[in-house]
Design a protein around this nucleic acid. Sequence first.
DNA 1: AACAGTATCCCTGAAAACAGGGGACTTATT
DNA 2: AATAAGTCCCCTGTTTTCAGGGATACTGTT
Lengths: 214, 214
Amino acid sequence: MKYNLIIADDHKMFLDGLLSILNSEKDYNILLTAKNGKHIAKYLEINPDEKIDLIITDITMPEMDGIALNKIVKQRKSNIKTLVVSMHNNPEMIDNLIEHDVDGYVPKNAEKEELLKAIQTILKGEKYFSREIKDIYMENKFSKKKDEEVKLTQREVDVITLIAQEFTTQEIADKLFLSKHTIESYRKNLIAKLNVRNLAGLTKYALKMNYIQN
Amino acid sequence: MKYNLIIADDHKMFLDGLLSILNSEKDYNILLTAKNGKHIAKYLEINPDEKIDLIITDITMPEMDGIALNKIVKQRKSNIKTLVVSMHNNPEMIDNLIEHDVDGYVPKNAEKEELLKAIQTILKGEKYFSREIKDIYMENKFSKKKDEEVKLTQREVDVITLIAQEFTTQEIADKLFLSKHTIESYRKNLIAKLNVRNLAGLTKYALKMNYIQN
DNA sequence: AACAGTATCCCTGAAAACAGGGGACTTATT
DNA sequence: AATAAGTCCCCTGTTTTCAGGGATACTGTT
């Protein structure tokens, strides 16, 4: 029985590379390749019952990035594994992905042997993170202790994301179908929670956490 | 007679992809692959008489990047062609490379057919630039006026930098020994000049321009 | 001498942000 | 059953931002 794989990467040549690596392995069947997460999300929606074992995805892609894709996949509790292959190695992204239960993370400059090992490990039901990624993650966790870790709720993330996109309180209220008072409360709480002084601080936090792109 | 190619890319998986594409073409012989420009520069130094037809290179690499490598290759007047394959498409890099007489530029999200076409075209002695790259280059050349409009004065840079650091108007006024009205004027002008809506927009601009670090 | 650009300061008035409270309802955890 | 956490709404004020004006003065260029 072959494993069914899906790959998302907007760099076609990289995709070709991945395909040539995986096609020479007889255990893997590539179901689908896509240049952004949206295609895959749609595919999952249309084919809810198809057996999909693993989605390999880049992080930065147009329309829907790997972080959003992983989130969608993991929210549906469908036992589809996810492996991120990326050249980005910033701690917040890694943190975000691990918190959303990604199954593995391999940098793009890894050897193909490592990629194959990662895939095998994940398909066995274990996690696989490259040494480099683990180091970055740990380093980040240790230095976080100083600044006392803050965790935002989903709603708070929604609000700060919109704030950082330059929407006014009233506009955000309209978008989320809430009262403007509520949004004001959220902003107030966010400023207190994140220990910043104003919009500028919230915006920088949102950027650091990759809630928005710049 | 086969063509001799050299490839430089620090992403090994991408390198694998490129190799698998080129190995299935019988006209090309891969002399060397390297994960940065320095290895190649050294190789050229040691083997000054070897027939090398084309160097395919990424831009961002550790130690010596593709821009520096291209510069070295083109300075020695050795008739070695250079093709850049990159995911970066910022106008300044493209400009720089074209000025240093690179022979071609293909984005990493191009199809493999386009890559092969680029290689063939360059080996015939012509230049090859993807439509996308040409567009960015032209857009940049023609819109110089627009850029000048968005140029900030030193004082404006001072103010936006402090704004993005979460200082209030009064604090900025104190720091710069100005009236708070002046700072308000600057903020107003900045918002108009940069075509943003509020503090969040200014903050993002300051980050993009590296006036502040995040 | 006229002009463009920059830097500085001021005004009004409306809109938004911010500080610092309270309360109610839902869901998850203990 | 009690508690905690999260979401949502509201109030009273004060401060700040923001839009749209105008004004003076210095500098370098034409």
